[in-house]
Design a protein around this nucleic acid. Structure first.
Lengths: 200, 200
DNA sequence: GTCCCGATGTATCGGCCCGATACATCGCTA
DNA sequence: TAGCGATGTATCGGGCCGATACATCGGGAC
């Protein structure tokens, strides 16, 4: 999952670890807390070892500081990395449909085709519907088994499920009829989301 | 976090691993997927080694099956375990306020005092408010930086934050004025779970 | 003027937790 | 009688987190 996120971001811009972390945090918003360094740097090395990314002649003291030994290490994605990213974003396993997995996929939807988007959206909906049914069962048949707080938690969870299903329905409808997210009144759609094109 | 959940459940009933897993899954509803065996059994051993729980003379073939070697292992909580649980549920670190941590704490709110509940509820609210402010900033100032899907994700996250803050406000108000979760119109009080839909 | 603090930056370590897998028994259905 | 799904315990590899260490720079406090 992390692989996809990092590859996806590097596809837009070469970056160093610290920057990557911040970009990811704002892009994923609420989905993920913020990738930890204990994950980030080992992952970058793993991706480099696999050939998906390379160090981009870091030249220390480039933009602002770090004049001494080992300045910031800027990574850029390779051709194999782009292939890998395309594979990752198109293939959907079970982990694609849990909260974190779906969030990352969705954040990079602009880089996929409509068929993939629909498949993932529908898989996610199925997952949430199952969760919802489970909660309904529990709430309907287990009145005396739980205390008021536990019940409230389950009720709140059920509410979130119903809301998310509605959200997904809307997205699916929009997707089917050709267009990107609706954005009814809240905000304007800033130009068309361009799938690919790496240089701004 | 897992420690708290297991200790909390064993405080209600002695149980074996498999049962623990199922109980936890229904109790926590949407919060946690369902504890994996790769976590559960090592954790039980760790808790036992620490003296928080003990094997309860398992006597195989007790309830239904498992007549041969190594039947189900039933665990029960010890006095030290109860102390430990009380410590865990009362003390609130930063991990208390993220999704999983808060969910587990909340699920066992019936076993805490009002002061602790209020402290945790307010800490959680603070956390979500921070998240919400972060998302508002991103959404207000970064119109052209993100594609429509990313924006939609952030907007959806913001919506969830606002909703959760409202939920927490309500809980805090109820808590301050003495009584447990309100359950205004959504569902009846525990003993009469309204039958909904059809269930053959 | 200097001193500390927070942001920027890379890196490692211990530990929690998950997914996959293996093994074993029971009860139901085909 | 054969298979399958639920029940049940257990291990292994690996992803990811939190804490920590180290290093530099800019700015505000004193």
């Amino acid at each position: 999952m992390l692989d996809m996120a990092i590859l996806g971001l590097l596809q837009e811009n070469p970056m160093h670890g610290y920057e990557l972390r911040k970009e990811l945090a704002t892009k994923l918003g609420t989905i993920r807390a913020a990738i930890s360094y204990g994950t980030l740097y080992p992952t970058l090395k793993r991706l480099q070892a696999a050939g998906w990314i390379t160090e981009s002649e870091s030249d220390p003291s480039m933009i602002p500081p770090m004049t001494s030994k080992r300045g910031r290490v800027v990574y850029k994605i390779t051709a194999e990395g782009k292939e890998r990213f395309a594979d990752l974003i198109a293939q959907a396993g079970p982990e694609t449909y849990d909260d974190a997995g779906f969030g990352v996929h969705f954040a990079f939807f602009a880089r996929t085709d409509q068929a993939t988007r629909l498949r993932i959206l529908e898989g996610r909906r199925r997952r949430i519907e199952e969760r919802r049914e489970g909660l309904r069962d529990v709430l309907s048949r287990a009145g005396e088994r739980f205390d008021a707080y536990t019940l409230e938690l389950q009720r709140h969870g059920l509410d979130a499920c119903e809301r998310e299903v509605r959200w997904l329905e809307e997205l699916i409808t929009n997707e089917r009829s050709g267009r990107a997210p609706a954005t009814p009144g809240t905000l304007d759609t800033p130009e068309t989301p361009r799938p690919h094109e790496d240089r701004p």
